[in-house]
Nucleic acid binder design. Structure first.
Lengths: 150, 150
DNA sequence: CCCCAAAATTAGAACCATTCTTTTTCTTGA
DNA sequence: TCAAGAAAAAGAATGGTTCTAATTTTGGGG
């Protein structure tokens, strides 16, 4: 059979030269399933599948996955790092100033670096990272008549 | 005399409702004189003028100045915060992946939020922060025949 | 001009995300 | 199946930043 099926997570790991371990498979799938999760949340997700996993193992795994280009790290100023499985497309992010929620925005202008600096000062620019700051739909409606805890 | 001279630093502090202290005057002037300095460097600069000043005082002063809009905080992922005196214009930054050097870029498109997201997901966006990643002129020339101390 | 409330400063400890070190366990290719 | 090397565990350490409580300074009102 000509195996042209979508590759398994394990295959993907092997494909980028990483060893296949239960921890990494679970981690990668947790990142992809989740929506911009942080390290703690990812550790919880992995533990749900495997039982006990150390935080350091998660950090190490994330390092490897990010270095291999399978996972992208997002670090909005003022909050801990989050991770997403969408890589390759040079998309950007909306961050809510109030609750910290993160949303994806497609890149308006083609491919990376989707933006040219007006004067690059001699820099060799390879990526433009855009963060849109604002209020998410939930936080922008003030005093909605609804029970809230806080 | 109609005092239409450029206001003193002290006047500016008063103008935004901050108390005028030697520490804050020195801090604001150090930020403006410097080029994207970090907290330690700013503390050194202030100490050169005033003698002993605690790091916490610098943190506190920076908080106040940032909150008042006299100073802007920049926090490139992976490095400690830097501060600059250029505020009001919604300009962006070039960051060198190798040495971490930071340079200003004028905003290509008018005023904040100089960029509109292709789909804002219902967010109320008030600012677009752009970081151009690349290599600065010094770091992009490989193996220049010059003595370097790594 | 002096006093007082509010604000700034200090010293020191606490915090938290992340990294480092060392040892143990697991994956993989021979 | 074995050994080499990579990954994971455990625990401590790091570094930038913030918090707490006590002290000093600032600036307006008496």
């Amino acid at each position: 059979m000509t195996a042209s099926q979508s590759p398994t997570t394990a295959d993907e790991l092997r494909g980028v030269g990483l060893r296949v371990t239960a921890g990494r498979v679970a981690l990668l799938e947790t990142v992809r399933r989740g929506d911009h999760l942080g390290v703690e949340a990812l550790a919880s997700g992995v533990r749900e599948r495997l039982g006990q996993v150390s935080l350091q193992a998660v950090y190490e795994g994330l390092h490897a996955l990010v270095a291999a280009g399978l996972v992208r790290r997002i670090e909005p100023p003022g909050s801990p790092a989050r991770f997403e499985g969408r890589v390759g497309d040079n998309h950007h992010h909306l961050v809510c100033r109030s609750c910290g929620v993160l949303a994806d925005v497609d890149c308006a202008v083609g491919h990376a670096p989707c933006l040219a600096a007006s004067d690059d000062c001699g820099f060799t620019v390879d990526e433009a990272e855009v963060i849109y700051w604002g209020l998410c739909p939930d936080c922008s409606t003030p005093a909605v008549p609804e029970h809230r805890d806080h």
